[in-house]
């Protein structure tokens, strides 16, 4: 069963019941002061168009890098020292508790912070998505500060879904992503308390960031493996999966025969057994 939750008045987020999915990814859109704004609708396959207001002229490029505002570096440094430095060190060089962040690139920082995975509540378990602690502007400031420390690493990708192909995306998604995240994007448990998270709360930028940076146990997909165009195609398909064509009715959480079996037995056979109880009655 899908609960559609309206956030920020603009975007519908399906949350699979029984799946530890949070709506953290959308948090940045619900805060009005965000540097990046979203317009357009995410609903059906054909009207999928997302544009970022804050990017430089993208043209037809499927992915452009977000230019970070260097005037926010000071703010970013303050936020970093307050929230991150206790583990990652004052200059982001890493400590015994947390890895080095210098030179990882803005995309990595942006993914972890914007999905709410960082700052971490408990460093011993896999970081899970939760509502981000920062506004979009604050997150970008932190990104700007950390990426100003050294060059290198992938930049924050802004995906032009208008230039992407849904059906090519399906092919790439089923080849590269469905193994862990499932073919419906609902996510599942991997070995040893590692989880492939649900893709339903993810934004276009976060999806592209994850593909390029390979957070946690996820493999990295560089440009030699997936081109920018291919990443944009995948993003378009994942955005479609967040609101798929449920022509058959209630989606039952999109986890396949497990819920179908329970519905068939409990609701199907169950209601018929109640009917049979009415018809047959009890022996006198």
């Amino acid at each position: 069963m899908i609960i559609r939750k309206k956030l920020g008045g603009r975007i519908l987020v399906p949350v699979a019941l029984g799946v530890a999915a949070s709506v953290s990814g959308m948090a940045l859109f619900s805060q009005g002061a965000a540097a990046a704004t979203v317009s357009g609708s995410v609903g059906s396959a054909n009207t999928n168009s997302l544009t970022y207001g804050g990017t430089s002229g993208a043209g037809n490029a499927p992915i452009t890098n977000l230019k970070l505002d260097s005037s926010t570096i000071a703010l970013g440094k303050t936020l970093f020292v307050e929230n991150c430095s206790s583990c990652h060190g004052d200059s982001a060089g890493g400590t015994s508790r947390a890895p080095n962040l210098v030179g990882l690139g803005a995309a990595t920082i942006d993914f972890w912070v914007s999905t709410g995975r960082m700052p971490l509540a408990d460093p011993t378990v896999q970081a899970i998505a939760k509502p981000s602690r920062f506004t979009r502007a604050q997150t970008l400031a932190i990104d700007a500060y950390v990426s100003s420390l050294a060059t290198g690493g992938p930049q924050i990708p802004v995906v032009n879904l208008g230039a992407a192909s849904l059906s090519v995306g399906e092919g790439l998604f089923s080849t590269n992503c469905a193994g862990c995240h499932t073919i419906t994007g609902v996510g599942d448990a991997l070995a040893d308390a590692v989880y492939a998270p649900s893709l339903y709360p993810a934004t276009s930028t976060q999806i592209a960031e994850a593909v390029r940076t390979g957070p946690g146990n996820m493999p990295r997909f560089g440009t030699g493996n997936l081109s920018d165009q291919q990443v944009a195609d995948i993003v378009k398909y994942v955005k479609y999966l967040q609101h798929p064509n449920n022509a058959g009715g209630i989606g039952l959480g999109h986890v396949g025969p497990v819920t179908e079996g329970f519905v068939g037995i409990l609701i199907g056979l169950g209601s018929l057994m109640i009917a049979g109880y009415w018809i047959g009655g009890r022996a006198h």
Binding site: A191, D192, V194, G214, G216, N217, M218, P219, R220
Partner: peptide
Amino acid sequence: PVGLYQELTQQLLCP
């Protein structure tokens, strides 16, 4: 197909 690669733990998982 053993397609699930867990990069940190360096393990392949069969779905």
